[in-house]
Design a protein around this nucleic acid. Sequence first.
DNA 1: GCTCCGGCTGCTC
DNA 2: TGAGCAGCCGGAG
Length: 107
Amino acid sequence: MGAPLINQAMKHFKSQVLLILSEVPFGSCISYGELAKQAGFPGYGRQVGQLMKKLPKDTKLPWHRVVNAQRRISFAENTDGYLRQKEKLEKEGWVIVGNKLTLNEGK
DNA sequence: GCTCCGGCTGCTC
DNA sequence: TGAGCAGCCGGAG
């Protein structure tokens, strides 16, 4: 692990990701990579995923609006996280077919 | 200190 | 349109 990111930068990375995530509007979604890029750390998509994983269940952050670049839920279909994310997304107007997201408007 | 495993990405075929 | 592959980065064992 070379340390491209010192502890302080990592902390900044996390707060930036959480900040941007908190600003994702209702009914919208963003990819892990895009979130990382906007946070100022392109290529850290996986780290964003790790961060999501560690979020508390009662978090106020719209973590469910984060999907991968293919607009698919990265969870396995039989996982709790997948079900919860799917449920939240559907309440925001998204339609999940398989694990693929489709916006239920204008269509 | 090395190796392997992820909620990924972008390019190619 | 969809599957395959290599690249990336931090964390855990």
